[in-house]
């Protein structure tokens, strides 16, 4: 039994990719859950907001690169990110002013906001297409690896290698910082608490002197920020293709619902749960098993499902959780 090699293979092919993907999903799900908690509808335009935000970040990155500005070992996109967030936030705030505010004023049923978000989704999809097109782009620059396979082998003498791409480490790092900051904001600051109060009881928040429009604006700004960060990290880690951002909507919704819609902690847990399950179920375990059980040579790949069916995994988790815990994994505290 060769635990060291099995562990290296597991870390390299399952744990590290899943952690990075989980961080991206968690950030996306946080945005969805915030909007659900405070504006009280599921925002179908969230995936396209991510795409638009990432698109602006890429354009800005190209601009910076053309000017010869770089962030050394880090991707240039990190410098562009704050500006991308600002532009996306402006667009989203404009959308709220032009579309959603009208229904809020009327106290319209939330389903109308859902329908409106479908309209916004079309518009944003079109904007992203006009902005950057439908092609696939890679925009990661800077150092490629923190640890590459050869260095690892030389260091440890193991036949199996372990690679840690800088984008993966960056994804997890940035996501952790953003999550801690968001929780600090929601639980410790007056504005954050006002957002939670508004989510709990809109009328009473108003009767406490909380300006509902300010809460809504803050929510949109944070959601735009989360979407842009999640989208940029996803694009750095994999690549940018506008349509993929539309498809990622399903795992993001699944993560948010699994964790209990409206619950930020649940969104994070849901994001990682969905990501780890997706990777674990679609990974061919044959090499890990080969190291753990010497002499055993399975005929197949020991892959539960083809990678094309990763969406099925988030779906099955969703169904199982809904069947056995209809309110999601976490109850109680909500945004």
């Amino acid at each position: 039994m060769d635990i060291a090699n099995a562990l290296v293979v597991f870390l390299n092919f399952v744990f590290i990719p899943a952690a990075a993907y989980g961080a991206q999903l968690a950030l996306g799900a946080l945005g969805v859950t915030l909007v659900y908690g405070i504006l009280r509808f599921s925002n179908f335009a969230h995936g396209d907001t991510m795409a638009f935000g990432t698109g602006t970040v890429i354009l800005l990155t190209w601009g910076l690169q053309a000017m010869g500005i770089s962030a050394g070992p880090l991707p240039t996109a990190l410098i562009a990110l704050p500006f991308g967030i600002a532009l996306t936030a402006l667009l989203v705030l404009g959308t709220d002013r032009a579309v959603y505010r009208f229904y809020r004023k009327q106290k319209a049923a939330p389903i109308i906001l859902v329908m409106a978000s479908v309209g916004v989704m079309f518009v944003m999809n079109g904007l992203t297409r006009v902005l950057i097109g439908v092609d696939e782009y890679r925009f990661d620059d800077g150092a490629r690896f923190i640890m590459d396979v050869r260095t690892f082998r030389e260091m440890t003498g193991l036949p199996e290698g372990l690679a840690l791409r800088s984008t993966q480490a960056l994804t997890v790092g940035v996501a952790l910082v953003v999550m801690v900051a968001l929780f600090w904001f929601l639980n410790r600051t007056k504005s954050g608490k006002a957002m939670r109060a508004y989510s709990d009881n809109e009328d009473l928040a108003l009767l406490s002197g909380i300006d509902p429009e300010r809460v809504v604006r803050l929510t949109w700004i944070i959601a735009a920020g989360l979407a842009t960060i999640a989208g940029t990290l996803y694009g750095l880690d994999k690549s940018f293709k506008a349509f993929n951002y539309f498809q990622i909507l399903l795992p993001i919704f699944a993560a948010a619902i699994v964790g209990g819609l409206g619950n930020p902690l649940g969104a994070i847990a849901g994001g990682f749960l969905v990501a780890f399950s997706e990777v674990a179920v679609t990974y061919p375990w044959v090499r890990v098993v080969g190291y753990l059980v010497p002499g055993y040579e399975p005929s197949g790949l020991m892959q539960l499902l083809g990678t094309e069916y990763k969406f099925a995994v988030s779906f099955v988790i969703l169904i199982v959780v809904l069947l056995f815990r209809p309110t999601g994994l976490f109850r109680g505290k909500s945004v």
């Binding site: 659900y36 908690g37 009280r40 509808f41 599921s42 505010r101 809020r104 004023k105 106290k107 049923a109 939330p110 389903i111 859902v114 989510s199 709990d200 009881n201 809109e202 009328d203 928040a205 108003l206 300006d211 509902p212 429009e213 919704f253 619902i257 819609l261 409206g262 909500s334």
Partner: peptide, 20 residues
């Protein structure tokens, strides 16, 4: 229509006062 679907609408804590 549609207000029963908890995956798209959140009826909890909705207000009645026009805050705008």
């Amino acid at each position: 229509r549609g207000n029963r679907d908890a995956s798209v609408v959140n009826p909890k804590g909705r207000g009645t006062i026009d805050g705008t």
